[in-house]
């Protein structure tokens, strides 16, 4: 690990430090620092700041950025109203990691692409302009949607997939104290020609909370398909809240993990489902729309049919139709 100065923030002002990296749970950042993928010269520890509460407000819930993944998953209100979020959190990492990992930090996890982690290899995300070995290399876990000719990395978070389903907004405190609220599609950038620019955050910004509006109507499911039954990243995951009434789908919100550089949501898929009677043909059509632009790179080709099957299975479960 490269040397760095350590400061424990006593106030939000201390955390708005352009020269520093913020550390909270540290479960991803310290791992990356041990590999010298991240080499900050200063760390600001925000763990003693006042961002640890889950608060209910009118038509929303505000989750402090320091709420641990385990506390969030176990919270009675989250379990009751936002089941997809509890389920996604419980499907991620291990008990030890969930105890340390925070809500804000989980959103900012870096990719698990093997070439990003291997500092002997080029990587456009780690070293802009150096090239991408994943396109023709080991790309089994990598993306099929939202990629560019510079990068095919996936975002690894389960939590963020559920938050995308729930239309979460991230509360960001700017260095001048102004508050900015971003949707996850606004927070996360697609790779394009600059895969190293992953988010819309600017130097000195501090994520202070995540806001969830009232949960959409319907049953909640988080289905994660992975190489082991526990403690593994998703190959494909689906977070879904779907409601049926009178034999028709009336509400649908769906997001996908393991497919793209950010939690993937395609509202056209939802519009296809809403107002229709659940059927095998309808689910096939939804999968066609979701996967219309999907592109495999060899090792990850299997994700295209796998996503279709998982989507159909989840929709079958949620609507009581066959599957």
């Amino acid at each position: 690990m490269k040397p760095f100065d350590y400061v424990r923030a006593a106030s939000h002002g201390d955390a708005h430090d352009n020269a520093a990296r913020i550390i909270a749970g540290g479960t991803n950042l310290l791992d990356l620092m041990k590999h010298q993928i991240e080499t900050p010269t200063k760390l600001v520890d925000v763990t003693r700041l006042d961002m640890t509460e889950i608060e209910e407000a009118e038509n929303s819930v505000r989750i402090g950025a320091l709420v641990s993944n385990s506390d969030l998953a176990a919270d009675p209100l989250i379990r009751e109203r936002y089941g997809v979020l509890s389920r996604a959190l419980l499907a991620g990492a291990s008990g030890q990691l969930r105890n340390k990992a925070t809500t804000g930090g989980n959103l900012l996890q870096r990719t698990r692409c093997p070439y990003f982690y291997d500092t002997t290899q080029p990587c456009n995300k780690r070293e802009p302009g150096s090239g991408c070995m994943a396109m023709e290399g080991q790309n089994r876990i990598l993306a099929i949607l939202g990629t560019s000719d510079k990068c095919i990395a996936t975002h690894p978070s389960d939590m963020a997939v559920a938050m995308r389903v729930l239309d979460a907004r991230v509360e960001i405190e700017k260095p001048d104290g102004q508050i900015q609220l971003l949707t996850l599609d606004e927070l996360y950038r697609l790779p394009g020609d600059t895969p190293h620019e992953e988010t819309a955050l600017e130097p000195g910004d501090l994520i202070v909370a995540v806001h969830l509006p009232d949960a959409p109507k319907g049953k909640h499911v988080y289905r994660k398909v992975r190489d082991r039954s526990s403690y593994a990243f998703a190959l494909v995951s689906v977070g879904a809240v779907v409601h049926t009434d009178g034999g028709k789908i009336t509400d649908a919100a769906l997001a996908f993990g393991g497919l793209g550089p950010r939690p993937w949501r395609d509202t056209e898929v939802e519009q296809t489902l809403i107002g229709e009677a659940p059927s095998e043909a309808l689910f096939e059509k939804a999968a066609d729309i979701l996967l219309a632009d999907a592109k495999g790179y060899g090792g990850n080709d299997f994700k295209i049919p796998l996503t279709r099957r998982v989507l159909k299975s989840v929709l079958g479960e949620l609507t009581g139709a066959t599957q």
Binding site: I23, G26, T27, L30, D31, D45, T47, L97, K100
Partner: peptide, 10 residues
């Protein structure tokens, strides 16, 4: 917690 993934100074 995993004591390898946290700093003593924290």
């Amino acid at each position: 917690i995993n004591s390898c993934l946290t700093l003593a100074v924290m």
